[in-house]
Amino acid sequence: MINPQRFSIGPADAAIAMVQWGESGKTPALLVHGTGFVADVWDEVACELASAYTVYALDRRGHGASHKPGSYHFLDYAEDVRRVIHALELHDVYGIGHSAGATDLLLAAKLLPGRFTRLFVMEPTIMDPRAARAGGLDEESLSRVEGTLRRRAEFDSAEAVFERYRTAPAFADWTETSLQAYVRHGFEPLDDGRVRLRCTPEIESAILRPIYEAMAQVYVGDARGNPFASLTEIDCPVRVTTAAKSGPIYWEMARRAVALIPQPSTFVFEDAGHCVAQEVPERVVEAVREFAK
Rank of each mutant, 00 (worst) to 15 (best):
181 A>H: 01
246 S>F: 11
44 E>R: 09
9 I>M: 00
153 A>Y: 03
203 I>G: 06
116 F>N: 11
64 G>L: 15
55 V>Y: 12
203 I>M: 01
243 A>K: 06
84 V>I: 14
27 T>R: 05
101 G>M: 08
262 P>M: 04
251 W>M: 11
171 F>G: 04
97 G>V: 04
266 T>F: 06
102 A>L: 08
35 T>F: 05
223 A>G: 13
77 Y>R: 05
74 F>P: 11
4 P>N: 04
218 V>Y: 10
287 A>R: 08
182 Y>W: 13
1 M>I: 12
240 V>C: 06
9 I>V: 07
5 Q>G: 05
206 A>V: 03
164 R>I: 10
242 T>A: 10
66 S>K: 13
273 G>L: 06
289 R>Q: 08
45 V>R: 12
267 F>G: 01
278 Q>T: 05
99 S>V: 08
210 P>L: 10
239 R>M: 15
232 T>F: 01
69 P>A: 08
256 R>V: 02
123 E>L: 03
165 Y>P: 00
235 D>L: 04
232 T>K: 09
7 F>P: 01
154 E>T: 14
53 Y>A: 05
44 E>N: 02
225 G>N: 13
166 R>E: 02
85 I>F: 10
62 G>Y: 03
145 V>H: 02
232 T>S: 10
20 Q>D: 03
73 H>D: 15
63 H>M: 13
258 V>I: 11
68 K>D: 01
31 L>Y: 03
254 A>C: 14
161 V>Y: 12
276 V>I: 06
191 D>F: 00
111 L>I: 05
106 L>Y: 01
2 I>A: 02
225 G>P: 15
74 F>I: 01
146 E>N: 13
234 I>H: 00
248 P>A: 04
141 S>A: 12
201 P>W: 08
24 S>H: 00
74 F>E: 03
